[in-house]
């Protein structure tokens, strides 16, 4: 098990662009109740499809009964200063805004999903074809954008405004008087996976170093979560673009062949439809 000390470096060394804002978020986990109001607000506002998330809350129970403690960890795009998703994007559809946002140009994205494979935080997803409002972007990559449209109009991101415990603090970290700058300055802050050098701009206060580790998440899934996950994987072909989804409980020889054929089947069955679901 990894025993890293998360956020040893504190605030990342990058300072953003001179004379520009540098938006960042601090999440005070001591105040987070795990109510998922942020998730609901974000999902509703952006019409985030079923099974995809711009922000979500990971919940972990640590210890053995009766000495247990429950940790919650809201997760969203870290708006990294050195984001791995940008250099691998073949069409420059994703880019770093001078004010710190990592943004997505829907009209350039070809849906190759290289950015999703590159993101260490699983913060990106593909918008499916079957969206509630067909005018919304489809079949392209999407992610949390710190509610750039709201922020540029002087409003806080939706997750921040909806947070019932006041755990989410947002602002310009370059302004020493801003709440987020003071919070980050006055507290011991941690970032997710700092060893990757992505310089995340979402800072956590009171982060449990074990639960913020992919290895912990992989090895310590509850039985119910595994079952729900397998069900989700079995039912999640979205235009064949997620043909890597496998049911881990069925990976013997016949299971592998069956899943391979099934995934290929959906991939090719969906192929003709792709050419008729919107010319461009």
């Amino acid at each position: 098990m990894a025993d890293r000390l998360y956020g040893m470096g504190g605030v990342s060394s990058g300072k953003g662009r001179p004379g520009r804002k540098r938006y960042a978020m601090a999440i005070d986990l001591r105040r987070c109740t795990g109510c998922n109001a942020c998730t609901a607000a974000c999902k509703t506002h952006f019409d985030v499809p079923l099974g995809e998330w711009r922000i979500w809350v990971m919940e972990t129970e640590v210890g053995k009964y009766p000495d247990t403690k429950r940790y919650v960890l809201p997760r969203l795009c870290n708006q990294c200063d050195d984001p791995p998703c940008i250099p691998v994007c073949p069409t420059q559809a994703t880019f770093k805004h001078p004010d710190g946002f990592v943004l997505q140009r829907y009209n350039r994205c070809i849906g190759c999903r290289a950015c999703m494979v590159a993101c260490p935080y699983n913060a990106r997803h593909l918008l499916p074809d079957h969206r509630r409002d067909k005018r919304n972007p489809r079949n392209v990559a999407d992610k949390c954008d710190f509610c750039v449209v709201r922020v540029t109009r002087g409003l806080a991101p939706l997750c921040v405004t909806s947070c019932t415990g006041g755990a989410l603090i947002f602002g310009d970290i370059n302004d020493p008087e801003s709440e987020v700058a003071r919070t980050v300055r006055d507290n011991k802050v941690f970032t997710l996976r700092p060893e990757l050098g992505t310089a995340p701009q979402v800072y956590y206060i009171g982060l449990n170093e074990s639960i913020a580790d992919p290895e912990f998440a992989f090895l310590n899934r509850s039985a119910q979560l595994r079952e729900r996950y397998a069900t989700f994987k079995r039912n999640s072909e979205v235009g064949g673009e997620m043909a890597g989804n496998i049911d881990e409980s069925d990976m013997g020889f016949f299971g592998l062949v069956r899943q391979g054929l099934h995934n290929f089947g959906t991939f090719f069955a969906e192929a003709p439809k792709k050419f008729f679901r919107g010319l461009y």
């Binding site: 990971m58 997803h125 310590n220 979560l225 989700f232 043909a243 890597g244 989804n245 496998i246």
Partner: peptide, 16 residues
């Protein structure tokens, strides 16, 4: 400990 709730992540590149 154990993770009891989380988002489900897709594998975007697969057999094809």
């Amino acid at each position: 400990g154990q993770v009891i709730a989380n988002a489900f992540q897709n594998a975007y590149w697969g057999f094809p």
